[in-house]
């Protein structure tokens, strides 16, 4: 439904987006990740037709954003970063304006606004000026505006940024509910969000795509994937280390960050918990903690994005 073809954007000598291509199908929620200044927002602005690309294009529901901008824009719902809206309007007037622009009149406009207001829960602020609304409500008004016309492609730039935990939960519920019928792209720098709602993640840094996989696959790239935390009462850390490192499937043993026991890293990400349990039983260690770690997305993210930065810095 959404196809990005070789998007490139130069700002003077700076290459903000460098040959980015991907496709998103119906039912997919794509997490678009990257450090600040990686080119996330610029890519979204090119997809939605706000920024003209230096080369390449995006195709939305078969409409090229450069050749048929109006048809393409009709298929997109877009929540902008920070959800700007006309401050002196009320949500009621603002949504009516957007409904009219999108071609809904009279009863149809009312029906659509009524339905979205119910889904997004903004009924109690409909007649207050947007400028006095809290961040959470403002964000919701932005989402209501983006979903009013039930678009097949939804693009959300940092939808939960600045929201409290309850509001975040609510936003994820909304995304989850609409997922089956839409192609959704979410830009974020919150990794928990990717794990919570995304079926796929793309990591971008310096304008290039560095990884494109499911969140689980990405986590598997972590050194911590299948690592085991082990602690035993009365057994010193040095003793544990000395015994554990002898096992052939163990690559490294480190003191755990919180000081309780050790972290055992497997060779090639293999499953080692059964072997460790056997070893502990053989030594009759009074085990107090034995836990398999899942691999942490934030570590993978840092490894991937900083590895990309290193050669660039060396070249400069």
């Amino acid at each position: 439904m959404l196809e990005i073809r070789h998007l490139v954007k130069h700002f003077g000598a700076l290459v903000a987006v460098d040959d980015v291509s991907f496709a998103v199908a119906r039912g997919e929620v794509l997490g678009f990740l990257g450090p600040s200044g990686a080119g996330k927002s610029t890519t979204m602005k090119m997809i939605t037709g706000f920024v003209p690309p230096s080369s390449g294009t995006s195709v939305i529901c078969g409409y090229d954003i450069l050749r048929a901008p109006l048809a393409a824009k009709r298929c997109i719902g877009y929540l902008l970063e920070g959800a700007p809206a006309y401050p002196d309007m009320t949500p009621a007037a603002f949504l009516e304006f957007v409904a009219h622009i999108r071609g809904f009149r009279g009863r149809e406009a009312k029906r659509r606004i009524g339905r979205i207001v119910e889904t997004i829960h903004i009924a109690d602020v409909m007649h207050q000026p947007i400028e006095i609304l809290s961040k959470g409500y403002r964000r919701r008004v932005g989402v209501a505006q983006a979903l009013l016309h039930d678009p097949p492609v939804v693009i959300l730039d940092e939808p939960t940024d600045g929201l409290d935990p309850n509001q975040k939960y609510e936003m994820r519920r909304i995304i989850d509910e609409m997922r089956p019928n839409k192609a959704i792209v979410i830009s974020t720098h919150l990794l928990e969000e990717v794990e919570a709602v995304c079926s796929r993640a793309i990591i971008i840094a310096h304008g290039r795509i560095l990884a494109d996989a499911t969140p689980a696959e990405l986590a598997r790239r972590s050194r911590r994937h299948n690592a085991v935390r082990l602690a035993a009462a009365g057994i010193s850390e040095a003793r544990l280390r000395a015994e554990l490192i002898r096992l052939p499937m163990v690559a490294a043993v480190e003191a755990a960050p919180d000081g309780e026991g050790v972290s055992v890293f497997p060779r090639d990400g293999q499953d080692i918990v059964a072997d460790l349990a056997d070893l502990a039983r053989a030594h009759r260690w009074p085990v107090t903690l034995l836990r398999v770690e899942q691999g942490r997305l934030d570590e993978v993210f840092r490894e991937i994005t900083t590895a990309a930065a290193a050669p660039a810095a060396a070249a400069a």
Binding site: T48, F50, A71, Y78, L80, P84, Y86, V98, I101
Partner: peptide, 13 residues
């Protein structure tokens, strides 16, 4: 205020 992006990504010429 940044609303220009909102405005110009609506389906209008």
């Amino acid at each position: 205020s940044g609303t220009i992006e909102l405005f110009l990504t609506l389906p209008i010429r």
